[in-house]
Amino acid sequence: MGVRIEALEGNRLQLCGDIDTVLDVPARGITEGFSLAFSDGTLVGANWIPGGPACQFAIAAEGAAMVKIVRQGFGEALELDWNFDWITLACGTETLQPYALPDGEDVLQLTLDIEVKEVA
């Protein structure tokens, strides 16, 4: 079935489907944006839309999942068709960096170390 993610009142994200939970988006995520990383390698950037429970999503890196961004109220919902081992949320404008940062730069990044295991 996968997972559907949509915004709720109170700066929260509803995850439903194979994973049913509610995530609180910290204040920094509301003002600066946030990122979601998925165990299949998918990375998604998101911004909270002022004026109501609504988000705007953008795919930053494609993983194995089939991903759809669909209209939901004033914003969008994210639908992912995959069986995930984990999903993580990070807040701030610099959580997704496509290139390595210079040494000494103190910026948090959302990085994934995914080990591929082949079955013999």
Rank of each mutant, 00 (worst) to 15 (best):
T21Y: 07
L23W: 14
L23N: 02
D24G: 13
V25T: 04
V25S: 02
A27Q: 13
A27Y: 11
G29L: 03
G29M: 04
I30M: 09
I30T: 06
I30Y: 07
I30S: 04
T31N: 11
E32T: 05
E32W: 03
E32L: 09
G33Y: 00
G33H: 02
G33Q: 03
F34L: 13
S35V: 12
S35K: 00
F38H: 00
F38L: 11
F38T: 03
S39I: 05
S39H: 02
D40G: 08
D40N: 07
G41P: 01
N47E: 10
I49H: 07
I49P: 00
I49N: 05
G51F: 08
G52Q: 05
P53C: 07
P53R: 04
Q56L: 11
Q56V: 08
Q56F: 04
Q56K: 14
Q56T: 11
A58F: 09
A60C: 14
A60N: 09
A61Y: 01
G63E: 02
G63K: 00
A64N: 06
A65K: 03
A65E: 05
A65S: 13
K68T: 08
K68H: 10
I69K: 07
I69P: 01
I69V: 14
I69T: 06
V70Y: 04
R71S: 15
Q72L: 09
G73P: 04
G73H: 06
G75A: 06
G75P: 02
E76C: 09
E76Q: 15
E76W: 04
E76F: 04
L78H: 02
L78P: 00
E79K: 08
L80I: 09
D81S: 15
D81F: 08
W82S: 03
W82G: 00
N83M: 15
N83Q: 13
F84P: 05
W86P: 06
I87T: 02
T88W: 00
L89T: 05
L89F: 08
A90H: 07
A90F: 07
A90P: 02
G92M: 08
T93D: 04
E94G: 11
L96F: 06
L96V: 14
P98E: 11
Y99S: 12
A100L: 12
L101E: 13
L101H: 08
P102G: 13
D103V: 13
D103M: 13
D106I: 11
V107Q: 13
L108M: 08
Q109T: 10
L110H: 03
L110E: 02
T111L: 14
T111Y: 10
T111R: 13
I114C: 05
